[in-house]
Design a protein around this nucleic acid. Structure first.
Lengths: 340, 340
DNA sequence: TTGAAAGCGATACCAC
DNA sequence: GTGGTATCGCTTTCAA
C-alpha cells in the first residue's frame, strides 16, 4: 500500500481523540470509555496500524531485544540451546539477535559492539570463549551458558553443567566397564580456553584419583580445521598407526565420538567390546550410529530455562540471587560401552 | 559507570559545541575544522560514547536490520544459506534477525508481524512455504531464496535454482547409468507446497519424456515427523518389505539420501551397483557416507550473493531489474552412481 | 565552520 | 475520562 506508515497521530486525528488516549487504549493503560476504546481499536485495525518500535524503544529505553551469541550454530548442542533460548525469550516478548561467532574473538567483539549500539536489553553468551577481549561499556545483564569464565559485569549469571564432573563420569563409566587404557579425544578450535580445559579436567582427575598412569600419547587433540567428525577419525588413525593402543575412548562431543567409532569400525575393531567409546551431548549423532554411542545428556532444556529465567529476572531489575546455576547431567549408556 | 548512557548532547556540552556539529563529526558529514573533529572524537572516546540506534532509526526511518526467515536451521542447506546471507548483510552494515519458522505458518506470521513492528528494512524469505498466509502491510523489499511462490509485494525478487531441472537431471543421471526402475524419496513437512511440487516435477517430467512408466509405489513420501534421515530409511524398508523393487533412487536431500543408503546397506544391498542413489544439496551428509553419495551442488554461495545484492539494490531504492534470478546447479557424481 | 531548532513516533505526567 | 505537552537521542535544514 505504499506511502508513509500510519502513526498514533493519524489514528488520533481520525478518531477525534488525543494521542495520549490512543496510546492508552493500545497499551491497556490508564482509563478510557468503552466507546473510545472500540473506536480507536477499529480505526487502528482499519488503518493497519503497527507500532513503531524504534520510537517506543527510544522513549522507554528498552528495545525488547536480546543478543544471543553462539560459537557454532552447526553444532547440534549449541543450535538446540539457541533455539530453546530464543523460543523462551520470544514467549516473554523479546526478540533475539542470533549471532554465530565462529569461535572468532574479533567477530564476537564486533557483534557485541553493534548490538550494544542497537540497544539490546540483555546478552546471552553461549559456549566456550574466554571473552577476555570483551569490553561492555554498559551495565546490561549477561547470562553465560556452558561457560565459566568471568566477565566482570555488574549483573552476570552462569548456567551450565559441572564439566569436570562430566568428563570424570565419562572416564569412570569406561573404567568401571573394565577399560584400562583410556584415550581422550577432543576437537576444538580453542583448546587453550577455559571451557575446554574444564571439559578435560575430570579425565585427568579421575585417572589421578584411581592411580592410573596418564599416557600423553592417548590424549588426542585436533585443531578443528575441518569437520570434527573427520578430524576425530584421523586422530584415531594417527594414534593407532603410531603403534599406541587403547581400550576406551572419552570423546568430548558426539560428533567426535562418531568419528572415532567410524574410524575404529573401518579398522575392524569391535566397538563396544574391544574398545568402548563414550561421547557427550546426546545429539543425533550418537543415536544414528551403529553401534549406538553412549553419551552424556547435558539437559539443554533446563539450561535454556534457567538461563532465560535468570535473564528475565535481571531485566525486571531483581537482584541476582544465584550467580552460578549448575544443571545436572546424566550418563546414557548404549552399545558402545555396554558391548551389546 | 552505570547511570545513564552518554548521549550526543553530553558530548556537545563537554566539547563546547552544538549537537549538530557532534553529529556531523561522528558521521563524517557536513564540514568542521580539524580541531573540532579531534576534540569531539577524543571526548566521545573518553566517554565511551555509543550511538543510540533507536533514536537514529526513528529519525532516519531505517533500522539497518533485516528479517531472515528460514524453515529449519538444522538443515545444512538452509543454515549455510542463512549464515552466508547474514555475513554479506553484516558486511553491508545490516544486522539480521534470524528466525526459525519450523515450517509453521503461524510462527512465520508471528515473526513477520513482530519484525515489521521492529521496523526491519527488508525481508529475506528462505525455503519452501507458500506463504499465502502472509500479509505484509508495508512496502518493504522482499527476497525469496529457493522458493517460487508469489507474494504480491511491490518490490520482490526470487533467487533459486531451476528445481524441476534439478530433479530432471538427477533422474537422467540415474537413467543414463542404466537404472530402469527409479524411486523418488522425499521427506518434508510440506509436500503439498509449491517448492516441493517443483522439486519433484522434473522426476515426473523425465520419466514421461523417456516413456518410462511411472510406478506410484516407488514414490515414497514421508511427513517429516522425525529426523529425515531415519524416516527415509523407514520409507525404503516399507517399500521393499511390501515387495516392490527399484534400481535407482532420487532422494530430495542429502540427509534423505544418507538414510536411504544406510537402510539399503543394512539389507545387504550393494549401493552403487545393485541400486544407484543420488541426493541433493552437496552437504556434509553426502560426503561422510560410505559409499560417498552422488549429489547436486546448488550453489548456496551464489544464491546468497545474488539475494543480498538484489536486496541492497532495492534498499537503495533502485528499481528491480530482474525479478527471477536462476542460479545454476551441477550434478556431482560419486560412488553411489558411479558404482566404484 | 558552526549552531538553533524542528521533528521522527510513542509515552506519561499533570491538568482539566 | 481525556488532552496538552515535554521528552527520549539523533539528524538535518537554514541562518549566522
Amino acid at each position: 500500500m505504499a506511502k508513509r506508515t500510519v502513526s498514533i497521530y493519524d489514528i488520533a486525528k481520525l478518531a477525534g481523540v488525543s494521542t495520549a488516549t490512543v496510546s492508552n487504549v493500545l497499551n491497556n493503560k490508564g482509563s478510557y470509555s468503552e466507546k473510545t476504546r472500540d473506536l480507536v481499536m477499529r480505526i487502528a485495525r482499519e488503518q493497519g496500524y503497527v507500532a513503531n518500535f524504534a520510537a517506543k524503544s527510544l522513549r522507554e529505553a528498552s528495545t525488547k531485544s536480546i543478543a544471543l551469541l553462539t560459537p557454532d550454530v552447526s553444532n547440534d548442542f549449541f543450535s538446540t540451546l539457541v533455539l530453546k533460548v530464543e523460543g523462551l525469550l520470544r514467549a516473554a516478548g523479546y526478540t533475539s539477535y542470533i549471532c554465530n561467532t565462529a569461535n572468532d574473538d574479533e567477530r564476537e567483539a564486533e557483534y557485541l559492539r553493534s548490538l550494544i549500539s542497537k540497544q539490546v536489553d540483555g546478552i546471552v553468551l553461549i559456549g566456550g570463549l574466554t571473552r577476555e577481549h570483551i569490553q561492555l561499556p554498559t551495565d546490561v545483564p549477561v547470562v553465560h551458558i556452558d561457560h565459566t569464565g568471568a566477565l566482570g559485569m555488574s549483573r552476570e549469571v552462569y548456567v551450565g553443567n559441572d564439566m569436570p564432573k562430566v568428563s570424570y563420569d565419562m572416564t569412570a563409566t569406561l573404567h568401571e566397564r573394565g577399560c584400562e587404557r583410556i584415550a581422550l579425544v577432543s576437537v576444538s578450535a580453542s583448546l587453550y580456553r577455559t571451557s575446554e580445559h574444564d571439559q578435560a579436567a575430570g579425565y585427568y582427575g579421575y585417572l589421578d584419583e584411581q592411580g592410573i598412569r596418564l599416557d600423553k600419547n592417548l590424549v588426542l587433540e585436533g585443531p578443528h580445521r575441518q569437520t570434527s567428525l573427520i578430524e576425530a577419525g584421523q586422530l584415531v588413525d594417527e594414534c593407532l598407526d603410531a603403534g599406541y593402543s587403547f581400550d576406551g575412548v572419552v570423546a568430548l562431543g558426539d560428533r567426535v565420538a562418531l568419528g572415532v567409532v567410524n574410524a575404529l569400525k573401518a579398522r575392524g575393531v569391535d566397538v563396544g567390546r574391544d574398545v568402548r567409546v563414550i561421547g557427550m551431548d546426546d545429539s543425533i549423532y550418537s543415536r544414528v550410529s551403529t553401534p549406538a554411542i553412549s553419551t552424556v545428556r547435558r539437559n539443554t532444556g533446563e539450561m535454556a530455562e534457567q538461563a532465560v529465567q535468570a535473564l528475565l529476572a535481571m531485566l525486571r531489575g531483581e537482584p541476582v540471587e544465584q550467580e552460578r546455576i549448575v544443571v545436572p547431567h546424566e550418563v546414557i549408556e548404549r552399545a558402545t560401552t555396554l558391548g551389546i
